Simulated scan of single mutants.
Amino acid sequence: MSHKILLIGGHGKVSQLLTPLLLAKSWSVTSMIRSPDQKATIEKLGQGQPGKLDVLVSSIEDVKNEGDAKSILEQVNPDWVVWSAGAGGRGGAPRTLAIDRDAAIAFTKASIHTPSIKKFLTVSYLASRRERPSWWTDEDWAAFEKVNNETLPTYYKAKIAADEVLTVLAKERIDEEAKKGVAEADKFCGISLRPGTLTDEKPGGVKMGKIGSRGNSSRATVAEAIVAVLNTDGARGWFDFVDGDDNAEDAVKKCVKDGIDAAEGEDIEGMKERAGKL
């Protein structure tokens, strides 16, 4: 089945690896980039691919609220949305919060509140969580605290806020769909894909599910994991992974079959309270 995907942050390293993989599935992709100078680079990614590629020049920094995001969604009319954007540490804390938190949440809300959009996937990171999960060691937790409290405190605040809004609103939509008798296969899929430390290594296998807080993930493997999750019916929730030996699609299917969601252990009621303020 053909799908139309809005890829937000299309000029990023992961997105440039991802775009040809999506097009190879004969899916249509609208790659959203911030500058006309980036357009030629993106257009090359669609050469010789069966899927259709469009390029939308529209800066994420102009998205201030859900209404701004909704206008872009109405222009593109996707059925799936992938958030793979970020400030990348440029512009200091205000820019990180404006993009990684505020704009991400705006697109999350607008997508979930659009009935024709069936999947929203955000690329987060392994340590984006508030509670220590039962499967983490003392060393895992110490590494988590160092990264989130010392190395990337603003990024952490932004990403966990966006992850929590996605988790809360996705559940609300699924509950509403259940009341309306929507078939399980047709229910909304909200996905937080959570790689380890990004590298430029070649693509490979993954280790996915209830894993520790440490490990690397090659950007090429992240791109393959995005395709695997999107291509798996019923894949929703938090997918933690690092480089490993398992085929990405097989690993995703196993997580879905076994009901593994790395959000387990998080304070859902606390999430609801915090998300309601954003």
Score class of each variant (00 low, 15 high):
Arg101Val: 14
Asp102Met: 00
Asp100Gln: 04
Ala104Tyr: 11
Ala170Tyr: 07
Leu169Cys: 01
Ile99Gly: 13
Lys159Asp: 15
Ala162Met: 02
Gly46Asn: 05
Gln75Tyr: 05
Ser58Leu: 14
Glu61Thr: 12
Val55Thr: 11
Val63Pro: 01
Val82Phe: 03
Asn65Trp: 15
Arg90Phe: 06
Leu152Ile: 02
Pro50Met: 05
Lys52Met: 13
Asp102His: 10
Thr167Gln: 09
Arg173Val: 10
Tyr156Met: 01
His113Asp: 15
Ala106Thr: 04
Lys118Asp: 11
Ile42Val: 14
Asp54Gly: 11
Asp140Arg: 05
Ile112Ser: 06
Glu150Asp: 12
Gly51Thr: 06
Thr122His: 14
Thr114Phe: 12
Lys119Ile: 13
Pro115Tyr: 12
Ala69Lys: 09
Ala162Thr: 11
Tyr156Ile: 07
Thr154Ala: 01
Val81Ile: 11
Leu166Lys: 07
Lys146Val: 10
Pro78Phe: 00
Arg101Trp: 02
Gln49Thr: 04
Ile160Phe: 09
Trp80Phe: 13
Ile42Ala: 08
Phe107Ala: 10
Gly88Tyr: 10
Ala127Arg: 03
Lys118Gln: 14
Phe107Tyr: 13
Val57Ala: 14
Glu164Pro: 07
Ala98Glu: 15
Arg173Gly: 12
Tyr155Arg: 08
Ala106Val: 03
Asn149Ile: 00
Thr96Trp: 06
Leu53Ile: 00
Val82Glu: 08
Ile160Ala: 09
Ser58Thr: 13
Asp62Tyr: 12
Ile60Ser: 15
Phe120Lys: 08
Asp68Lys: 10
Arg129Gly: 10
Val147Phe: 12
Val165Trp: 08
Lys157Thr: 15
Val147Ser: 12
Ile117Arg: 07
Ala104Glu: 12
Ile160Thr: 13
Arg90Ile: 08
Arg95Ile: 15
Val168Gln: 07
Ser128Lys: 01
Arg173Glu: 14
Asp62Cys: 10
Phe144Gly: 00
Ser111Met: 09
Arg173Ile: 11
Ile42Ser: 07
Lys64Glu: 08
Thr114Glu: 09
Thr96Met: 06
Gly89Cys: 09
Ala87Gly: 01
Arg101Met: 14
Gly88Arg: 02
Trp141Val: 07
Lys64Met: 12
Ala127Val: 15
Phe120Arg: 08
Glu131Ile: 04
Glu139Ser: 05
Ile174Cys: 04
Ile72Leu: 06
Asp62Asn: 14
Lys109Pro: 11
Ser84Arg: 01
Glu61Lys: 12
Asp62Trp: 04
Thr96Ile: 10
Ala87Lys: 03
Ala170Val: 09
Gly89Lys: 03
Asn149Trp: 03
Ile72Met: 03
Val165Gly: 02
Pro50Trp: 05
Ala161Tyr: 00
Ala142His: 06
Trp135Thr: 13
Arg130Pro: 03
Asn148Pro: 03
Ser128Glu: 06
Asp102Glu: 12
Ala85Asn: 08
Glu145Asp: 13
Lys44Trp: 09
Asp54Arg: 05
Gly51Asp: 02
Val57Pro: 08
Glu131Cys: 06
Ala104His: 07
Phe120Val: 05
Glu43Cys: 05
Asp163Phe: 02
Lys64His: 14
